[in-house]
């Protein structure tokens, strides 16, 4: 009999959670361990079956929920992610590396061999892919939680939503809305500080403007972001150089389509 794909395995006492690491800084999986108040509670609701950073006990798959941190940068990992997908009922990619390639995806715009030589004396020891790619470039992803790093409260919400088979309540508006909710004075309007807030996905709580600096888009683009218009106004209104605009599109989420296309258009325009 074919089981209902939507249901979590009901014959087991607790749904099984797995946490996987690919190329990353560990900061997003750390967010789970940073949930001091919720961690032990969560451990009562879930069977943390595979989480090598936190436990030497490994339980076999399949898993009800897999959290995937990091981007794919090696041939072995390109295979491993297929295996993770096969074992996972629900696969959620967490963080900028997993959803948009991460800072290491800057290699995609450069010569990877020159990159290897810059760090390693013996580049022949190193096996790496030419590009760093998000998880969704390799397998079907059920939900992407953006952010560098992710917001731990959003992570708890997403896990809880999938446990209860309801859509996650993760606001997809811009950082500007969070900034207004916080009662901040706009750093762009009041101080002329270049800010990525209007196109950036909410989730951080508008911390950069709250600390008197412009948003640098570590949460990646919001839904339907008008990146082209924002960059136009950075240039026209704030007189920001094109190279700086490109660098702001190419930092922690360089492969997010809204940022990638705009940065490529601007890089081409620059070279013309």
């Amino acid at each position: 009999m074919v089981s209902d794909q939507r249901s979590l395995a009901s014959d087991r006492a607790l749904p099984k959670l797995a946490v996987w690491k690919f190329t990353s800084c560990d900061g997003c999986q750390l967010s789970l361990l940073d949930c001091e108040d919720e961690l032990l509670l969560l451990a009562g609701q879930l069977d943390i079956a595979y989480f090598l950073e936190a436990s030497s006990q490994v339980k076999e798959g399949p898993y009800d929920i897999s959290l995937v941190e990091g981007s794919i940068t090696t041939p072995a990992d390109a295979q491993r992610i297929l295996d993770v997908r096969r074992q996972s009922q629900v696969l959620i990619s967490i963080g900028a590396c997993a959803t948009a390639g991460g800072i290491q995806a800057l290699r995609n715009f450069a010569d990877i061999q020159a990159f290897t030589r810059a760090v390693y004396a013996h580049p022949e020891y190193i096996a790496t892919l030419k590009e760093s790619t998000p998880i969704s470039a390799h397998v079907t992803v059920d939900f992407e939680l953006q952010g560098c790093p992710i917001n731990k409260h959003q992570l708890i919400e997403v896990i809880s939503a999938f446990l209860h088979q309801r859509p996650p309540q993760v606001a997809n508006h811009s950082v500007c809305i969070e900034c207004k909710l916080r009662g901040n004075v706009c750093v762009w309007v009041a101080h002329g500080t270049p800010c990525m807030g209007p196109v950036t996905h909410a989730g951080c709580g508008a911390i950069c403007p709250s600390y008197n600096r412009g948003c640098y888009a570590c949460y990646g683009p919001k839904e339907n972001s008008n990146t082209g218009s924002l960059c136009h106004w950075w240039a026209e209104n704030l007189h920001v150089e094109n190279t700086l605009i490109i660098e702001n599109l190419r930092n922690f989420n360089p492969l997010a389509p809204a940022f990638k296309q705009e940065s490529e258009g601007r890089a081409d325009g620059d070279s013309d």
């Binding site: 991460g102 290897t116 760090v119």
Partner: peptide, 17 residues
């Protein structure tokens, strides 16, 4: 752990970054 080439990707970026 896959390498991430930080030293290489810092080249050309602003000191403030």
């Amino acid at each position: 752990e896959p390498p991430r080439f930080f030293e290489a990707l810092l080249a050309g970026r602003s000191y403030l970054e």
